[in-house]
Design a protein around this nucleic acid. Structure first.
Lengths: 146, 146
DNA sequence: CCACAATATTACACATCCGAAGTAATAGAA
DNA sequence: TTCTATTACTTCGGATGTGTAATATTGTGG
């Protein structure tokens, strides 16, 4: 069939607006409970799964560019949440490792987000959540240039 | 059951990262074709459906706050895409109206996004797209504080 | 050893967001 | 009417993001 429905043309903006509103809530929620914003929280979460990864990988994994990551990691290092480590294997690269304080905060962020994400999917069945995850995984690949 | 699956805890970040990547692609795509970014495009789209709406409504409709809208509209007014109109009915409020140039650009943005959104949902059935839309509509309400 | 590539940092210009404070106009109460 | 609270927008300061370009350091291949 493939009938062009008006909603199709606005899908990106619907996503954008939903993301904006969710981010605002998540920021408030996190700031109140853990004292960080979503950008730093994303770094904490990612490092929990890929500790001592290199800055370039961290940038890729959190969707920021290298310049942004340098600043982000710098602020977090100043707050004692992580530390930069020069790798002996490649001394051009720096790895990032969570400190004890970083690990503890990550734990709290994870707990906060368990609640947050539970509310996020309220009204959806498990299979519908799977569909959303499938979309979120496919879409960025689908639109990648070239 | 409600078994806590690890993916649940990261849902927000999966969404955040997907949004970041999609926005970057959309920005490139739009900048190349229409010469605006996604924020300005969102305003153009919204105004097409609600021309001469007030700034507060525009802010609500695009998910930004009033301060952000003032700047955004200011830049677009400088580019001759729209104009501010002081309402005689309430002189505190300002309405925003697309110029001819704004309408023309909106048309192009809509065409660009038809292609973009088509690619966005590649691999999903219509019913799965409906599920995604349902999620995007529900989620911001679900997490709204109090 | 040398040329080139890769990594991270820094600097710049700019877009965009927010919250808080400020200004102006309206609406409602005394 | 006059005082007060609310509403609408703007302004300000600060955070964060982007892209680009320059730089220093290091690794790699010839």
């Amino acid at each position: 069939m493939a009938i062009a429905r008006p909603v199709d043309r606005r899908l990106f903006f619907i996503l954008d607006r939903a993301h904006t509103r969710l981010s605002k809530e998540a920021d408030n929620y996190l700031a109140k409970n853990a004292g960080v914003g979503t950008s730093q929280a994303a770094v904490l979460i990612y490092l929990g799964y890929h500790d001592r990864c290199r800055l370039t990988d961290l940038a890729e994994g959190t969707g920021r560019n290298n310049a942004a990551i340098t600043g982000l990691v710098g602020r977090m290092e100043a707050d004692d949440l992580l530390e930069r480590i020069t790798l002996t294997s490649d001394r051009r690269a720096k790895a990032v490792a969570l400190t004890d304080k970083g690990w503890a905060l990550r734990e709290q962020v994870m707990n906060d987000f368990r609640d947050f994400n539970d509310r996020l999917v309220k009204g959806l069945t498990e299979s519908e959540v799977e569909t959303v995850l499938k979309f979120l995984a496919l879409a960025p690949e689908n639109v990648k240039a070239d």
